[in-house]
Design a protein around this nucleic acid. Structure first.
Lengths: 248, 248
DNA sequence: CGAGGTCTTGACCTCCCTCAAGCCTTGTGG
DNA sequence: CCACAAGGCTTGAGGGAGGTCAAGACCTCG
């Protein structure tokens, strides 16, 4: 955790929102050009995080939000008796730490599933800037409420749906998020293990594996370890139709 | 709970935070006296909502947050195929609508489980006031992040815990929230049906009923329909120990 | 007082978990 | 560069928690 924070990029480039390719997906969405330049000043340079490292941990003092620039994170909540629940997977342009925004402690742990880069958004600067730029303040509200809605979708998924449906929702969601970032929506690599998928979806890793196999037998997908190819999107959508699922 | 309703002053005035008995639980928490008076101006008079009525519905234009003054609400998300997931129960001092804050549409439906009164907090006034009062703005952030954490606790509950544990967490949580409002933590009336409890906890109403019966056989609680008496709090806590659960 | 909603309880069944064995992939050190 | 270890994945067999279906009791409210 502390390791990550101390590493400084080699040619300390400052990340700038105003030229970032992710601006349509990330914090600056909807800001005017001049406001975005103000935001640039409030953001710390790109920080690398190595695979397996924690960006922050549950209970850490909350100082900053983080935006994923490249790579893939999971966030987890751990109960006292050691049960771990994955609460989300996060890719480029998505913010982490909103569950602690305005408080003094992080409410979950964020772990890099591959080598990543993040932008750091120090809270006090962001707060001050938000008070000056109403559009930014409103956008922060919006991002947080979107997170609430996402979590409520996850509750519906965990509370009401069967293993097949859960995994279908998961695949569809991932596929859509890949597409939104300009990657193929039909072929992608899972960055997380079966166990992590299972934890997120409330099922055991064996059930995840079996369900993948069944989807493959049905000709819906092709699975080769972490490599997924979607063959019959319509069939998967059919299964999920009527579910609310995991909008991100 | 119904007792609370009778406390209402007869000369129905404009709701004012600065004199409200719920201020410690509600929006004004942490504001200075003068700031609270400003907040008074931004709040609409008490609105009654009849049992069974919707305060707002999923998809409705978002115009206001609502604070429960008296009574009891559920919020639900309904998927297209009609599956209903209860996402929360809300009692005096708790805000509803945060999942839509800063957006233009409500993300869930809020239904009164008994005759209720709410305070309406129009968004545009709240937003303007928040830009003037940093403490209020920060408190709004905090309320939203608390909601996110609460939902993540629910995810852990739905994803990892067995029926017994879920119901124990539910009872404990309710008991604590009653206590925080000055009601008995040992005896209370469930305002929701078994089916609604089940929906919230991701189990069927029969399982809720059976689990209540088992708790009663074990001497942990006494159940008479909706009337619950907690007999052995320690045993229930024991069952829940190590779980994160549903902080509110 | 009766009707409809709510709750309890029983019997049965199914989906998913558990346990186990073996294979595959990845990374590391000789 | 290969070998081996360790973690990750798949698949099978069996069992159990909770779902489903059904019947009847109990409220509660018009």
């Amino acid at each position: 955790m502390s390791a990550a924070r101390e590493i400084i990029p080699i040619h300390a480039l400052k990340a700038v929102c105003s030229t970032c390719s992710l601006q349509e997906l990330c914090l600056p969405l909807g800001l005017a050009q001049e406001e975005m330049v103000q935001l640039d000043d409030a953001i710390n340079q790109r920080m690398p995080v190595r695979r397996g490292e924690a960006l922050f941990r549950l209970g850490d003092a909350f100082r900053s939000l983080y935006a994923v620039r490249t790579g893939f994170f999971k966030t987890v909540v751990v109960s006292e008796d050691g049960r771990e629940q994955v609460t989300g997977f996060h890719m480029a342009g998505e913010l982490m730490g909103l569950d602690a925004f305005g408080t003094d402690q992080h409410g979950c742990t964020a772990i890099a599933l591959e080598d990543c880069e993040v932008c750091e958004l120090p809270y006090h600067r962001l707060e001050n800037l938000a008070l000056e730029i109403p559009a930014l303040n409103r956008h922060l509200y919006k991002l947080m409420s979107r997170e609430i809605i996402r979590d409520q979708g996850a509750m519906l998924l965990l509370g009401n749906m069967r293993a097949e449906e859960r995994l279908a929702v998961f695949l569809l969601n991932l596929s859509q998020r890949m597409a939104a970032r300009g990657f193929s929506s039909r072929q992608f690599v899972l960055r997380m293990t079966r166990e992590e998928i299972g934890s997120y979806l409330g099922m055991k890793l064996e059930t995840v594996s079996r369900t993948f196999s069944r989807f493959q037998q049905d000709g819906w997908i092709k699975v080769q370890g972490k490599q997924i190819e979607v063959l019959d999107l319509a069939a998967i959508k059919q299964l999920v139709s009527g579910c609310i699922g995991l909008q991100h």
